[in-house]
């Protein structure tokens, strides 16, 4: 292997807290097919960003993602991670520094959970002790007790537990970049919600650059820092924060993707504390909501109780104000205005 490849890999690998990924006019044409599967795809993912690719099945979102670790080789265009052209690196060496989680999980059935997680550290030549410590640490990170699970085999685990191991395995060598292909797609709704919540908490502490493919728009809203809504040939219809996409869908295609209830979905993204609160009084103190809950939770409580107003409490439990349906509505309007303002600012900057 040429020395430059080594240095490039070392450099990529050292950015464990997220690297910058740039795709520039990347296309994929399968032999014997007229239409490209992916056409001139360009995007920049900032370090530590969680980017969701959303689109219908067959739109090329998975193909686009798999070109980043070269499971699929691009036909043209360039892909760089932290400025390093990955197409010039050895694909296997490259992949050891990119975490990869797929829907079918693909745990190795003949290896224990610990052995599964230790695969990449072993490939990288870590010492036994360092590998073992890392396995323990990761199992704890994904909330599986090492004593119980390390020496079990994949078939002895539930689907949700297997997917946690899949995530732990992808994180094993502390890669700067993670690629996730519908990782929670095959789990039941309750498990999925739990895994999503855990994953969000995990990402807060590890801050990897993550490309996450899903066809579930609600999952995209819930998890993503930014969402790319994709249509045929992986064309980007809109690429923005969840709130911005919900407030201002770029076109009918995006609107159809959001579906009904855009306002409710937006409320779920706005914390109670951003609303202008009414006066705190004993009259509203029968029903309480916390400042870091979402406005959607607040609305829910208002409807369920039928009360005209509910109390808002801070983290210490002190009553700090009240909320009504009108105030929630105003907050939603203000949120849209604020979004528009940032957009025009960005426009001016650009």
């Amino acid at each position: 292997m040429p020395e430059s490849t080594d240095t490039a890999l070392t450099q990529i690998a050292s950015r464990t807290d997220g690297a910058r990924i740039v795709l520039d006019r990347v296309s994929k044409v399968y032999p014997g097919q007229d239409a490209p599967a992916v056409e001139e795809f360009s995007m920049v993912a900032e370090p530590g960003e969680l980017i969701m690719f959303v689109g219908p099945s067959g739109c090329g979102k998975t193909t686009t993602m798999k070109m980043i670790n070269r499971i699929i080789e691009p036909s043209s265009g360039s892909i760089t991670i932290d400025g390093r052209d990955i197409l010039s690196l050895d694909p296997s060496e490259l992949r050891r520094h990119i975490g990869y989680v797929i829907q079918q999980i693909g745990l190795f059935p003949h290896m224990t959970i610990a052995e599964n997680i230790a695969v990449v550290p072993k490939l990288l030549g870590w010492t036994k002790q360092r590998t073992a410590d890392r396995v323990d640490e990761l199992l704890q990170t994904v909330q599986l007790d090492p004593g119980t699970f390390a020496h079990r085999y994949p078939r002895q685990l539930s689907g949700g537990q297997q997917q946690r191991v899949g995530v732990a395995r992808a994180l094993a060598a502390d890669p700067p970049v993670m690629l996730m292909d519908e990782p929670f797609g095959a789990t039941d709704p309750i498990t999925r919600e739990k895994l999503q919540a855990e994953f969000l908490r995990l990402q807060e502490s590890i801050g990897k650059t993550i490309i996450f493919v899903t066809h579930d728009f609600d999952e995209a809203i819930r998890l993503g820092d930014r969402i790319a809504v994709l249509s045929e040939r992986s064309q980007i219809e809109q690429f923005d924060t969840p709130a911005a996409i919900l407030a201002e869908p770029a076109n009918d295609y995006v609107r159809s993707f959001i579906g009904q209830g855009a306002a409710l979905k937006r409320l779920a993204l706005i914390p109670v504390e951003t609303a202008v609160l009414g006066a705190a009084s004993a009259a509203v103190d029968h029903h309480r909501i916390a400042t870091d809950d979402s406005l959607r939770d607040a609305l829910d409580l208002l409807i369920v109780t039928g009360a005209p107003a509910i109390g808002v409490v801070d983290r210490s439990g002190t009553l700090v104000g009240s909320l009504t349906v009108e105030r929630i509505s105003t907050a939603l309007g203000a949120d849209a205005t604020a979004l528009a303002a940032t957009r025009s600012d960005e426009g001016r900057l650009a």
Binding site: N69, I71, S92, E93, L94, R95, R96, H97, I98, Y100, I102, Q103, Q104, I105, G106, L107, F108, P109, V119, V120, L123, G166, R169, L179
Partner: peptide
């Protein structure tokens, strides 16, 4: 051998 197992082996950098 399931394709998903092979794909994840490939994705983990096994030649």
């Amino acid at each position: 051998v399931p394709p998903s197992v092979l794909e994840s082996a490939m994705g983990m950098g096994m030649g």
